[in-house]
């Protein structure tokens, strides 16, 4: 499908986080919804301004529960069902002994789902992204703050959005090619 606009979006550059936050808020107020902000440090408030909350904790909880079930299930199945064996008179279902491995598996699965879930939801790895086309963007990992309004935004139009973003008070506004 041919994109509607010749560019991916507009990228405004800011000097510090407070300016970015203000710009994000006013863009939101102006009705823009398909935006992304780029910051050198994590800024929870910016994400919230963009209307975003993550569901990652639930994924991790699910991973942990799965890990616990797999951990205890593995031990129960191997020690009680598949190969019951008398070890020093202890019961087949030696649950006090099984707690440790159950615990470790819980942690392992939860940690793995935290990392993989984060990458998956973030769409990473993604070595190529249009925003990297802007030379100044390399400062996003140093000391500059960026706000991008994507051309996918229903309210986007080439001239209007440009002039709106010029009015946000950033250092510059650049086109992001596809």
């Amino acid at each position: 499908m041919k994109p509607k606009f010749p560019i991916y979006g507009y990228l405004a550059e800011f000097h510090d986080g407070a300016e970015l936050l203000a710009a994000a808020k006013s863009s939101r107020a102006a009705g823009y919804t398909v935006m992304e902000a780029y910051t050198p440090v994590p800024m929870e408030e910016v994400a919230h301004t963009l209307g975003f909350r993550t569901s990652l904790p639930w994924i991790v909880l699910a991973g942990g529960v799965l890990g616990a079930c797999v951990g205890f299930g593995l031990q129960y199945w191997t020690s009680v069902i598949d190969y019951p064996m008398n070890i020093g008179g202890r019961p087949m279902n030696s649950w006090p002994s099984f707690i440790v491995v159950t615990f470790e598996m819980t942690i392992l699965f939860a940690a793995a789902s935290a990392v993989l879930g984060m990458l998956w939801l973030n769409g990473l790895p993604q070595p190529y992204h249009p925003v990297f086309n802007v030379p100044a963007f390399e400062l996003a990992s140093r000391n500059r703050f960026f706000l991008m309004i994507l051309s996918r935004d229903p309210q986007f139009d080439m001239a209007g959005t440009k002039s709106f973003m010029d009015g946000l008070g950033g250092l510059s506004v650049k086109e992001v090619p596809h």
Binding site: P125, P127, Y128, F132, E138
Partner: peptide
């Protein structure tokens, strides 16, 4: 900064992990 990876690397990297 300029792109250092070709767009195809996105698919490639995801596919290679899984």
């Amino acid at each position: 900064m300029a792109q250092i990876f070709h767009p195809s690397t996105n698919t490639l990297s995801k596919v290679s992990i899984f």
